[in-house]
Simulated assay, not measured.
Amino acid sequence: MSIQHTVVFRLAHPAASAEERDFLMTGHSALTSIPGVAEFTIRRQVSGKSDLTHQFSMVFADQNAYDAYNVHPAHTAFVAERWIPEVVEFQEYDFVE
């Protein structure tokens, strides 16, 4: 049973700014370096129905891979050093297939 982990969020940075690009690039590099992360995507949300503007999505083969990701040093460092200071609001969703 695979798990699709999705986080939709809004950054403190202006759209199309160097800070926004750096955050997204750093997130991609840090999170895709973690074993078990597959199908990583970054998307921009365009609907006026939500003020959350970006999405990170990834797939894990099973619960063990997802659990290992959550405690991996690259994930915890990204959350502490970048996510907490730069993300204003977010929603997290985990779906099983």
Rank of each mutant, 00 (worst) to 15 (best):
V59S: 14
H75D: 09
E89M: 07
A77S: 12
Q55H: 02
E86F: 03
H72I: 08
V88N: 13
V88K: 14
Y93D: 00
E89L: 06
V7I: 12
R82A: 09
S29A: 15
D22N: 11
E20L: 04
H72L: 06
H28E: 14
M1G: 13
E97D: 14
E81Q: 15
V87Q: 04
Q55D: 00
W83T: 02
H28F: 14
Q55V: 15
H5V: 13
D67T: 10
V71D: 01
P35M: 05
M58S: 05
H72M: 07
H28D: 12
A74N: 14
N70V: 01
I84Y: 13
A77P: 00
T53P: 00
P73L: 04
L24V: 15
V79K: 07
V37A: 01
D62K: 13
K49T: 08
V7P: 02
L24N: 02
L52I: 01
F40W: 06
A61K: 12
E81D: 15
T53F: 00
I3T: 10
Q4T: 11
M25A: 15
M1L: 12
H75C: 09
S57W: 00
F23M: 09
E92N: 09
E39P: 01
T6K: 01
A80Y: 04
Y93L: 11
A38M: 11
V46M: 06
A38E: 14
Y93G: 10
E92D: 05
V88C: 10
R82E: 13
F9A: 02
P14R: 11
R21C: 06
Q4C: 11
S17G: 09
D94R: 03
S33T: 15
I84V: 15
A15V: 12
E89D: 15
P85K: 03
A16T: 11
F23H: 04
Q63D: 15
E19Y: 01
P14C: 03
V59M: 07
V96C: 09
V88Q: 15
S50F: 02
A65F: 03
A61H: 12
V71N: 01
E86I: 00
F95D: 04
Y66H: 13
T6R: 02
H54N: 11
N64K: 14
M1I: 10
V7M: 05
S17Q: 06
I3R: 05
R44Y: 04
L31H: 07
F23A: 08
D22F: 09
S47K: 04
V7D: 03
G27K: 03
Y93R: 05
A74G: 07
G48C: 07
F23N: 03
V59H: 10
D94M: 03
I34G: 03
